[in-house]
C-alpha cells in the first residue's frame, strides 16, 4: 500500500499547573505511586494527582482492563482503544495506542490501513473489533446486536467481548481527560 505510516512520538502538556512532586501531600504521592527514588512521573499523572482519590482508583481499573492476563489478546484491546480514541478525538491517545498496536503485532499494516481510512484492509476479526469500538464510542452508543454477532462470527467469546467493551469504555474515560485537559506538543527527544 502506498503511504506506509510509521507513528511518530509526541508529548503532552496540560492547560493547568500540575502537582509539584516536591510539595505533594501524602495522598497525592500515593496516587502518583511516588517512591523515594522515582523520577520522571508524567505531566499527565501529576495533573490528575490534583484529585488523588479518582486518580488512584482509575489507574487501578485502567491497568486491570488493559493488562489483565488471559482473555482478549492485548493487541485486540489496543485496537479497541484506538477506535475509541479516534471517535473521541484524542490525538495523543491515538498516537500512543497506534504505536502500541504496531509494537504488539510487529507490523504497521493495521495502522497504515486505518490512517488511510481503509478498515476493509484489516482482517475480518480486526474489522469486527474496529466497527464495534467506533459504534460503542458514539454518544449515545450506536452499537447493535449486529456488531456483537460480527464479533462472535470472528471468533470472540462472550468473555472476550466483555474485555473489549471495557477496553473501549475506559478510553471513553481516558480520552475525556487527556484531550480536554491538555494538548500534544512535539516530543522533546526521540
Amino acid at each position: 500500500m502506498p503511504g506506509r505510516i510509521r507513528v511518530k512520538l509526541l508529548d503532552w502538556a496540560p492547560y493547568i499547573e500540575p502537582v509539584d512532586i516536591a510539595r505533594a501531600n501524602a495522598r497525592q504521592r500515593e496516587a502518583m505511586q511516588v517512591t523515594p527514588s522515582s523520577l520522571g512521573i508524567s505531566l499527565y499523572v501529576r495533573t490528575l494527582a490534583h484529585d488523588p482519590e479518582s486518580c488512584l482508583a482509575r489507574t487501578i481499573l485502567f491497568n486491570a482492563i488493559m493488562y489483565a492476563p488471559g482473555g482478549l489478546p492485548r493487541a485486540d484491546r489496543e485496537l479497541g482503544a484506538l477506535g475509541a480514541s479516534v471517535v473521541n478525538g484524542c490525538p495523543y491517545c491515538t498516537m500512543v495506542h497506534a504505536r502500541r498496536l504496531a509494537d504488539l503485532t510487529g507490523s504497521d499494516d493495521a495502522v497504515t490501513a486505518l490512517w488511510h481510512d481503509r478498515p476493509d484492509r484489516l482482517s475480518p476479526r480486526g474489522q469486527a473489533i474496529w466497527s464495534f469500538a467506533r459504534a460503542l464510542s458514539a454518544t449515545p452508543s450506536a452499537a447493535t446486536p449486529d456488531h456483537v454477532r460480527a464479533l462472535r462470527d470472528a471468533g470472540l467469546s462472550g468473555a472476550d467481548i466483555i474485555d473489549l467493551i471495557h477496553a473501549v469504555a475506559i478510553f471513553g474515560w481516558a480520552n475525556r481527560l487527556m484531550h480536554p485537559l491538555g494538548h500534544v506538543v512535539p516530543a522533546a527527544r526521540c
Binding site: L136, S137, T139, P140, S141, A143, I161, L164, I165, H166, V168, A169, I170, G172, W173, R176
Partner: peptide
Amino acid sequence: NYQCRVTAG
C-alpha cells in the same frame, strides 16, 4: 461516559 459504555455494551 465510561459507565454508559459499559452498560450499553
